[in-house]
Amino acid sequence: MTPLPLLLTLSALLFVLGLFAVLSRRNAILVLVGIELMLNAANLNFIAFWRYGPPVADLTGPLFVLFSIAIAAAEAAVGLAIILMNFRRTRSTDLNRLDSLHG
Protein backbone atom coordinates (compact mmCIF):
# COMPACT_ATOMS: atom_id res chain seq x y z
CA MET A 1 0.00 0.00 0.00
CA THR A 2 1.34 3.40 -0.93
CA PRO A 3 1.20 6.28 1.56
CA LEU A 4 -1.55 8.24 -0.19
CA PRO A 5 -4.45 5.74 0.20
CA LEU A 6 -3.27 4.97 3.73
CA LEU A 7 -3.31 8.65 4.73
CA LEU A 8 -6.66 9.20 3.02
CA THR A 9 -8.16 6.22 4.85
CA LEU A 10 -6.79 7.49 8.17
CA SER A 11 -8.29 10.89 7.45
CA ALA A 12 -11.66 9.37 6.47
CA LEU A 13 -11.78 7.40 9.74
CA LEU A 14 -10.84 10.50 11.76
CA PHE A 15 -13.56 12.49 10.01
CA VAL A 16 -16.14 9.80 10.70
CA LEU A 17 -15.14 9.62 14.38
CA GLY A 18 -15.54 13.39 14.64
CA LEU A 19 -18.92 13.22 12.93
CA PHE A 20 -19.98 10.50 15.36
CA ALA A 21 -19.01 12.74 18.29
CA VAL A 22 -20.95 15.68 16.85
CA LEU A 23 -24.05 13.54 16.34
CA SER A 24 -24.04 11.53 19.55
CA ARG A 25 -22.61 13.81 22.26
CA ARG A 26 -24.91 15.93 24.39
CA ASN A 27 -22.28 18.12 26.05
CA ALA A 28 -21.66 21.16 23.83
CA ILE A 29 -17.94 21.22 24.59
CA LEU A 30 -17.57 17.60 23.47
CA VAL A 31 -19.37 18.46 20.23
CA LEU A 32 -16.59 21.02 19.69
CA VAL A 33 -14.10 18.18 20.25
CA GLY A 34 -15.74 16.32 17.37
CA ILE A 35 -15.57 19.41 15.14
CA GLU A 36 -11.85 19.74 15.86
CA LEU A 37 -11.33 16.10 14.84
CA MET A 38 -13.17 16.70 11.56
CA LEU A 39 -11.11 19.82 10.79
CA ASN A 40 -7.94 17.85 11.47
CA ALA A 41 -9.03 15.14 9.07
CA ALA A 42 -9.50 17.76 6.35
CA ASN A 43 -6.04 19.19 7.05
CA LEU A 44 -4.54 15.72 6.82
CA ASN A 45 -6.08 15.33 3.37
CA PHE A 46 -4.51 18.57 2.15
CA ILE A 47 -1.08 17.48 3.37
CA ALA A 48 -1.48 13.95 1.95
CA PHE A 49 -2.40 15.18 -1.53
CA TRP A 50 0.33 17.81 -1.53
CA ARG A 51 3.03 15.35 -0.47
CA TYR A 52 2.05 12.12 -2.20
CA GLY A 53 -0.28 13.24 -4.98
CA PRO A 54 0.73 14.16 -8.54
CA PRO A 55 3.82 16.41 -8.58
CA VAL A 56 3.05 20.07 -7.88
CA ALA A 57 5.34 23.04 -7.89
CA ASP A 58 3.40 25.43 -5.65
CA LEU A 59 2.64 25.18 -1.95
CA THR A 60 -1.14 25.46 -2.05
CA GLY A 61 -1.70 22.46 0.25
CA PRO A 62 0.42 23.62 3.21
CA LEU A 63 -0.80 27.21 2.75
CA PHE A 64 -4.41 26.08 2.93
CA VAL A 65 -3.63 24.06 6.06
CA LEU A 66 -2.03 27.10 7.72
CA PHE A 67 -5.12 29.24 7.09
CA SER A 68 -7.37 26.39 8.14
CA ILE A 69 -5.53 26.03 11.46
CA ALA A 70 -5.87 29.77 12.11
CA ILE A 71 -9.59 29.66 11.40
CA ALA A 72 -10.04 26.50 13.52
CA ALA A 73 -8.45 28.29 16.47
CA ALA A 74 -10.80 31.24 15.96
CA GLU A 75 -13.79 28.92 15.72
CA ALA A 76 -12.86 27.14 18.97
CA ALA A 77 -12.48 30.45 20.81
CA VAL A 78 -15.84 31.82 19.66
CA GLY A 79 -17.58 28.47 20.20
CA LEU A 80 -16.32 28.16 23.75
CA ALA A 81 -17.21 31.78 24.49
CA ILE A 82 -20.79 31.15 23.34
CA ILE A 83 -20.96 27.96 25.41
CA LEU A 84 -19.66 29.84 28.47
CA MET A 85 -22.15 32.64 27.97
CA ASN A 86 -24.97 30.14 27.78
CA PHE A 87 -23.60 28.24 30.78
CA ARG A 88 -23.83 31.43 32.80
CA ARG A 89 -27.53 31.71 31.93
CA THR A 90 -28.67 28.11 32.23
CA ARG A 91 -25.97 26.55 34.47
CA SER A 92 -25.61 23.74 31.96
CA THR A 93 -23.70 22.80 28.80
CA ASP A 94 -26.35 20.29 27.77
CA LEU A 95 -27.36 20.90 24.15
CA ASN A 96 -30.88 19.63 24.77
CA ARG A 97 -31.48 22.55 27.09
CA LEU A 98 -30.54 25.14 24.46
CA ASP A 99 -34.16 25.68 23.55
CA SER A 100 -34.90 29.31 24.41
CA LEU A 101 -35.37 30.14 20.69
CA HIS A 102 -37.72 27.20 20.27
CA GLY A 103 -41.10 28.38 18.97
Binding site: I29, L32, A76, L80, R91, T93
Partner: peptide
Protein backbone atom coordinates in the same frame (compact mmCIF):
# COMPACT_ATOMS: atom_id res chain seq x y z
CA UNK B 1 -5.97 23.54 26.56
CA UNK B 2 -8.82 25.99 25.91
CA UNK B 3 -11.25 23.06 25.82
CA UNK B 4 -9.84 21.60 29.05
CA UNK B 5 -10.22 24.97 30.78
CA UNK B 6 -13.76 25.37 29.49
CA UNK B 7 -14.57 21.96 30.97
CA UNK B 8 -13.01 22.97 34.27
CA UNK B 9 -15.10 26.11 34.66
CA UNK B 10 -18.39 24.56 33.56
CA UNK B 11 -20.20 21.96 35.56
CA UNK B 12 -19.59 18.41 34.39
CA UNK B 13 -22.56 16.78 32.71
Amino acid sequence: ILIVFALLITRPG
